[in-house]
Amino acid sequence: MSVVDQGLANAGTGKGKPNRLTRNLMSKIAALPMIMTAMVVFVGCTIWTIVYSFTSSRLLPKENFVGLDQYERLWGSSRWLISIQNLVWYGVCSLILTLVIGFTLAALLDRKIRFENAFRSIFLFPFALSFIVTGLVWQWILNPDYGVQGVVRGWGWESFSFDPLYNPDIVIFGILIAGIWQGSGLIMCIMLAGLRGIDEDIWKAARVDGIGTVKTYLVIIIPMMRPVFITSLVLIAAGIIKLYDLVVAQTSGGPGLASQVPAMYVYDYMFKAQNLGQGFAASTMMLLSVVIILIPYIYLQIRGNKNG
């Protein structure tokens, strides 16, 4: 009974409220899991890790603060530097290729074609698969003896060499092939939704002015789809930083340390090498990179909301 009364009071004129805390009480209780998740896990755990990244914790978290020691050691470690380098290569290539492939496929599908649904299903289905499955299949396709290299050599081109998973110089591109296969369908889908949101009149106007199809896309449509591109960019970037399972499945970080990525560094130091401090520092760096990506995005969102 009391719950109803409070709710009614709330829905009413907004004067003479009872107690601030008990107002809408049931809603607050129902939202408790969300509040706990937001405050304890997302805020609390993140701050905890950042604080403990300034300690010399090894097997167990300890409170002896050592300043930036862990970070100095982190940036002096060749394994971390390789991880960062790999992530930058993977990130830049994946970003460009996923955007280009995603947009191109979406544009082709938007040309009023037959079998649109069939094609879209084909491009998107890898996204339903796990990174482990993706990684293992591509590990097999890129197998130097039986896979692509073996096939081309079988055609008579004996010196052909394509063994990305065994060649430290190009291993990250072997992972890239699988990553694009898995993720580009999602971006295609988002781009297609964006293209469908473009006013038909734009196309008519462009045709009246005699602008070609490709040019219309480049000069008119793409600039109009800026918000869609920014969303895609943020999604791809957030995924890139989390890159982990795919590498575990495809190469386990090898050969040697050649395909290490930051998430793997964090996992290994936290749960295998019992060097928590390094794991904390590395994961804090990962957070920092996300923050750097997110701040301009949030800024643009807020500005966009104010403008319209």
């Binding site: 993140t46 989390k242 930051p262 998430a263 936290m270 990962m286 997110l294």
Partner: peptide, 11 residues
Amino acid sequence: FIPYQIMLYPI
């Protein structure tokens, strides 16, 4: 958007 890695251990 927070990378899971930073919350793994406290959890």
